[in-house]
Protein backbone atom coordinates (compact mmCIF):
# COMPACT_ATOMS: atom_id res chain seq x y z
CA UNK A 1 0.00 0.00 0.00
CA UNK A 2 2.73 2.46 0.96
CA UNK A 3 4.65 1.40 -2.11
CA UNK A 4 1.60 2.18 -4.24
CA UNK A 5 1.27 5.66 -2.73
CA UNK A 6 4.97 6.34 -3.30
CA UNK A 7 4.81 5.25 -6.93
CA UNK A 8 1.66 7.34 -7.41
CA UNK A 9 3.40 10.44 -6.03
CA UNK A 10 6.45 9.82 -8.21
CA UNK A 11 4.29 9.43 -11.32
CA UNK A 12 2.74 12.76 -10.30
CA UNK A 13 6.24 14.25 -10.19
CA UNK A 14 6.96 12.96 -13.69
CA UNK A 15 3.65 14.42 -14.86
CA UNK A 16 4.72 17.77 -13.45
CA UNK A 17 7.97 17.59 -15.46
CA UNK A 18 5.92 16.75 -18.57
CA UNK A 19 3.81 19.83 -17.88
CA UNK A 20 6.90 22.02 -17.45
CA UNK A 21 8.26 20.54 -20.70
CA UNK A 22 5.08 21.57 -22.51
CA UNK A 23 5.34 25.03 -21.00
CA UNK A 24 8.96 25.38 -22.16
CA UNK A 25 8.00 24.26 -25.65
CA UNK A 26 5.15 26.75 -25.80
CA UNK A 27 7.13 29.70 -24.45
CA UNK A 28 10.15 29.00 -26.65
CA UNK A 29 8.10 28.05 -29.77
CA UNK A 30 10.33 24.98 -30.05
CA UNK A 31 9.76 22.30 -32.68
CA UNK A 32 10.62 19.69 -30.00
CA UNK A 33 7.55 18.17 -28.28
CA UNK A 34 6.93 18.86 -24.58
CA UNK A 35 7.44 15.25 -23.53
CA UNK A 36 10.94 15.24 -25.02
CA UNK A 37 11.66 18.61 -23.36
CA UNK A 38 10.58 17.02 -20.08
CA UNK A 39 12.96 14.11 -20.74
CA UNK A 40 15.88 16.52 -21.30
CA UNK A 41 14.92 18.45 -18.19
CA UNK A 42 14.79 15.33 -15.99
CA UNK A 43 18.08 14.04 -17.44
CA UNK A 44 19.68 17.40 -16.63
CA UNK A 45 18.26 17.35 -13.08
CA UNK A 46 19.59 13.81 -12.52
CA UNK A 47 23.07 14.51 -13.95
CA UNK A 48 23.49 17.63 -11.85
CA UNK A 49 22.18 15.84 -8.76
CA UNK A 50 19.44 18.44 -8.22
CA UNK A 51 16.99 15.52 -8.25
CA UNK A 52 18.50 12.46 -6.51
CA UNK A 53 17.98 9.23 -8.46
CA UNK A 54 15.76 7.66 -5.80
CA UNK A 55 13.17 10.47 -5.85
CA UNK A 56 11.38 9.43 -9.03
CA UNK A 57 12.94 6.02 -9.78
CA UNK A 58 10.00 3.87 -8.64
CA UNK A 59 7.46 5.84 -10.66
CA UNK A 60 9.68 5.91 -13.75
CA UNK A 61 10.33 2.15 -13.62
CA UNK A 62 6.65 1.47 -13.19
CA UNK A 63 5.65 3.69 -16.16
CA UNK A 64 8.26 2.03 -18.38
CA UNK A 65 7.08 -1.41 -17.30
CA UNK A 66 3.48 -0.64 -18.34
CA UNK A 67 4.51 1.38 -21.42
CA UNK A 68 3.04 -1.02 -24.01
CA UNK A 69 -0.30 -0.86 -22.15
CA UNK A 70 -0.35 2.93 -22.53
CA UNK A 71 -0.52 2.53 -26.33
CA UNK A 72 -3.68 0.47 -26.14
CA UNK A 73 -6.25 3.31 -26.44
CA UNK A 74 -4.55 4.86 -29.52
CA UNK A 75 -4.31 1.44 -31.11
CA UNK A 76 -7.99 0.77 -30.52
CA UNK A 77 -8.65 4.01 -32.45
CA UNK A 78 -8.02 1.92 -35.59
CA UNK A 79 -11.61 0.67 -35.27
CA UNK A 80 -12.86 4.05 -36.50
CA UNK A 81 -10.98 3.52 -39.74
CA UNK A 82 -12.06 0.02 -40.68
CA UNK A 83 -13.52 1.11 -44.05
CA UNK A 84 -10.40 3.14 -44.77
CA UNK A 85 -8.29 0.08 -44.12
CA UNK A 86 -10.33 -1.99 -46.53
CA UNK A 87 -9.77 0.55 -49.32
CA UNK A 88 -6.38 2.24 -49.09
CA UNK A 89 -5.08 1.12 -45.75
CA UNK A 90 -3.70 -2.19 -46.91
CA UNK A 91 -1.34 -0.53 -49.38
CA UNK A 92 -0.21 2.08 -46.84
CA UNK A 93 0.18 -0.58 -44.17
CA UNK A 94 2.44 -2.42 -46.62
CA UNK A 95 4.49 0.75 -47.13
CA UNK A 96 4.83 1.23 -43.37
CA UNK A 97 5.76 -2.43 -42.87
CA UNK A 98 8.51 -2.43 -45.51
CA UNK A 99 9.80 1.03 -44.59
CA UNK A 100 9.98 0.12 -40.89
CA UNK A 101 12.15 -2.90 -41.61
CA UNK A 102 14.32 -0.78 -43.90
CA UNK A 103 14.75 1.86 -41.17
CA UNK A 104 15.61 -0.85 -38.69
CA UNK A 105 18.26 -2.46 -40.86
CA UNK A 106 19.83 0.84 -41.98
CA UNK A 107 20.04 2.32 -38.48
CA UNK A 108 21.27 -0.94 -36.94
CA UNK A 109 23.89 -1.33 -39.67
CA UNK A 110 25.22 2.22 -39.28
CA UNK A 111 25.12 1.89 -35.47
CA UNK A 112 27.02 -1.40 -35.56
CA UNK A 113 29.66 -0.05 -37.94
CA UNK A 114 30.42 2.96 -35.73
CA UNK A 115 30.33 0.90 -32.51
CA UNK A 116 32.73 -1.72 -33.95
CA UNK A 117 35.19 0.92 -35.05
CA UNK A 118 35.20 2.24 -31.48
CA UNK A 119 35.63 -1.25 -30.03
CA UNK A 120 38.51 -2.10 -32.39
CA UNK A 121 40.32 1.15 -31.67
Amino acid sequence: MRKGVRIGLQVGGLYLLFWVGNLLQEIGHLPIPGSIMGLFLLFFLLITGIVPEAWLAGGADWLLKVLPFLFLPSFIGVMNYSSFFIHQGVVLAGVVFVNTLLVMVVSAWVGTRIARRKEDA
Partner: peptide, 28 residues
Protein backbone atom coordinates in the same frame (compact mmCIF):
# COMPACT_ATOMS: atom_id res chain seq x y z
CA UNK B 1 3.75 12.08 -21.76
CA UNK B 2 5.18 11.29 -18.30
CA UNK B 3 6.27 7.87 -19.63
CA UNK B 4 8.41 9.62 -22.28
CA UNK B 5 9.84 11.82 -19.50
CA UNK B 6 10.59 8.64 -17.51
CA UNK B 7 12.91 7.47 -20.32
CA UNK B 8 15.45 9.84 -18.75
CA UNK B 9 16.04 7.10 -16.15
CA UNK B 10 17.51 4.37 -18.39
CA UNK B 11 19.48 7.15 -20.11
CA UNK B 12 20.86 8.35 -16.80
CA UNK B 13 21.64 4.88 -15.47
CA UNK B 14 23.43 3.93 -18.69
CA UNK B 15 25.17 7.28 -19.13
CA UNK B 16 28.59 5.60 -19.38
CA UNK B 17 27.23 3.86 -22.50
CA UNK B 18 26.43 7.23 -24.01
CA UNK B 19 30.03 8.29 -23.68
CA UNK B 20 31.15 5.07 -25.34
CA UNK B 21 28.45 4.62 -27.97
CA UNK B 22 27.10 8.16 -28.39
CA UNK B 23 28.45 8.46 -31.93
CA UNK B 24 27.07 5.05 -32.92
CA UNK B 25 23.59 5.88 -31.63
CA UNK B 26 23.60 9.33 -33.16
CA UNK B 27 24.83 8.06 -36.54
CA UNK B 28 22.40 5.17 -36.61
Amino acid sequence: GPAVVALAYPLYRQRHLLRRYGAAVLGG
